[in-house]
Design a protein around this nucleic acid. Structure first.
Lengths: 353, 353
DNA sequence: TGACAAAATGAAACCCGTTTCATAAAAGGG
DNA sequence: CCCTTTTATGAAACGGGTTTCATTTTGTCA
């Protein structure tokens, strides 16, 4: 059966479609009697306006595109959840655009991510979304490919684009981002306050902005405390549990060991925890570990992770509110900074010689 | 600047919009010369067809609604990721509809979930999605509210609806679902094979179908082995880490302790692990633990969780393929069963008196 | 009761594609 | 070279709403 349209309602109510539309949207006064008749018919037929038709004329869809690299990375659902909360309240629906590739064996491949981002951008434009949020992927590049950056700016001319937790230098796109450097400083300062002097950093990808910033925070904290940074205690290129395990095993097998490890994310920290456990080293008594991101799993480990919270939910909420303002044509600050918090749990303890 | 339309292209190419449309969709032969001219103009102006207008006439949108209870529950991103993989290949975009409520403090509230599901259903209808996938929430109800069930069936009359991992008895809606009972049997049989006789079950919600089925699997396995089920060793109403910890602490404090615990999901198992650790009980030497779901975190714990995999990714993929067929009007089996697998890792060991 | 503003409503254009139907042009067959 | 197909193309309707503009009613106040 064909869905009921405003024409059907209009015919049966002996009015024009214009009047039906007015009742539907409350855009102009309609005589009470007429209105009641129309409303009754709408209920009777369970009339649901066709959003496509509506959006076509209104030139707004209430749809947003949310582009992220990998929904199975637990950090993103947190952000998304905050975004969802506000977006829903503001009347938006959103397309989830995951840019990761997986092969048939469900292994994640990051190689064609940017290509996929581009595909999604143009798909979202066709779908006439009101705005686009991007997190991860190309947004995290310290040196963005000029072509990519240009493409994003072109898109941003047509529809509001908001970047989360990244930067994309040289472009001037609006952003909501946590202060990554400060987060790292907080973490490392905490270790220093506990008496640690031999501190290693593991993880991250050197070409990513956030890695560079966190590393800068690490260096600043060390420098401020007059502590040296050993080259062999800075191990990058990886963000997974496996990598964390690998890095840590390596550190623990060296002749000189750090007494504390600052991990670029919680997954790495979980890996570090596993490596320490396998090596028979007690955490936090013999080795302090600090993570980054405060994913839910940080409290699932034994012991629970001390970590830096980027207030992921809050970031998502902020994003929705900001994007809504941009869509409404209001001015918003170019950069909204989220101030990270150190969450002290169980993986850090005072240094014991 | 106003986006370029087929009319703009047509005017500049000195053809009618019909011809432009034909070039766009390859629906009829167009003289090579003309086609080239039009294609060139499209590229020149970066023409992107308006998907709204297109969908309006075609009566298909390539959009799907994916309704789930809580994206921060790590089980769902897995399913979603599999779904995404196939859906993308098949040319669909999807709206993510999270039905959980959170308050300002980011606490999750499950009380208004069904209400939200209903809202999303009607929103998705308005948006003219081509199909709807539902997982969790109302789908897991062993005794569905008749009104809710009726609503879903009404929706299903207009647009293909596919339920994942649930049942909704008495309705005849298509489903893709793991064999929950078998999964539980696999897990419990494994414990029995290891020599355990004192086995407890924790978690789940008694009004949910999957809980009832898993419980049935537990009972069957026990009965087949001639083992008794102690009432006080069956503890339900909860699915979280905290609950797992609470249940397990309770079990370990009792005068008689089980030697193995079957948990209704991995989160509970992680909680059990934490409780055992706090109580100074070694896993798996003194206590064997089996989880359910095989979420990624199952390998992050120490020791790594033995658990039942529901092949979440595969479920998602299957869902996408099946829904696509339904949309195409092809016949699909009412129920597609996913056969769970037992993943033996480190939290189970032979019974030691 | 007349004058004028406000309320109520309809006709028609518009949004941007797709599709049908009709016509014109080119190609193939005898 | 004429007739029949096939190819190529345009005009116009359509999908389902919104919105402008004009017109008719109704209400209010002097």
């Amino acid at each position: 059966m064909r869905p009921v349209t405003v024409y059907d309602i209009a015919r049966e109510a002996n009015v024009s479609v214009a009047t039906v539309s007015r009742v539907l949207n409350n855009t102009a006064p309609v005589k009470k009697e007429t209105r009641d008749r129309i409303v009754a018919l709408m209920n009777k037929h369970q009339f649901q306006p066709n959003a496509l038709a509506r959006s076509l004329t209104r030139k707004e869809t209430g749809m947003i595109g949310f582009i992220l690299p990998d929904i199975t990375n637990p950090f993103f659902p947190e952000v998304l959840s905050g975004f969802d909360y506000e977006a829903r309240k503001l009347g938006y629906t959103y397309f989830l655009c995951d840019t990761i590739s997986t092969n048939e064996e469900n292994q994640r491949l990051y190689d064609r991510q940017y290509e996929r981002e581009s595909q999604y951008l143009s798909l979202l434009m066709e779908k006439q979304v009101d705005g686009i949020v991007m997190i991860g992927g190309r947004v995290d590049l310290a040196k963005p490919d000029p072509a990519l950056a240009h493409e994003l700016e072109e898109v941003a001319k047509r529809v509001p684009v908001l970047l989360l937790n990244g930067s994309l230098p040289k472009t001037k796109l609006n952003r909501v981002a946590a202060d990554q450097k400060l987060g790292a400083q907080l973490a490392v300062q905490h270790l220093i306050d506990l008496g640690h002097r031999d501190i290693a950093v593991i993880g991250g990808f050197s070409k990513m902005t956030n890695t560079q910033q966190r590393l800068a925070g690490f260096r600043t904290a060390m420098k401020d405390a007059g502590l040296p940074v050993h080259r062999e205690w800075v191990m990058t290129e990886g963000f997974s549990v496996e990598k964390g395990q690998e890095f840590t095993t390596h550190l623990l097998n060296a002749k000189r060991r750090p007494s504390a490890i600052f991990c670029m994310n919680d997954l790495l920290a979980i890996g570090a925890l596993k490596a320490a456990h396998r090596a028979g080293i007690a955490v936090p008594e013999q080795l302090s570990i600090v993570g980054y991101d405060d994913i839910p799993q940080a409290t699932y480990c034994i012991p629970e992770l001390t970590t830096v919270s980027l207030l992921s939910q809050e970031t998502g909420r902020q994003a929705a509110r900001t994007l809504d303002k941009m869509i409404a044509g209001k001015k918003v600050p170019f950069l909204q900074t989220i101030v990270p918090e150190l969450i002290i749990r169980e993986t850090t303890a005072p240094y014991q010689p």
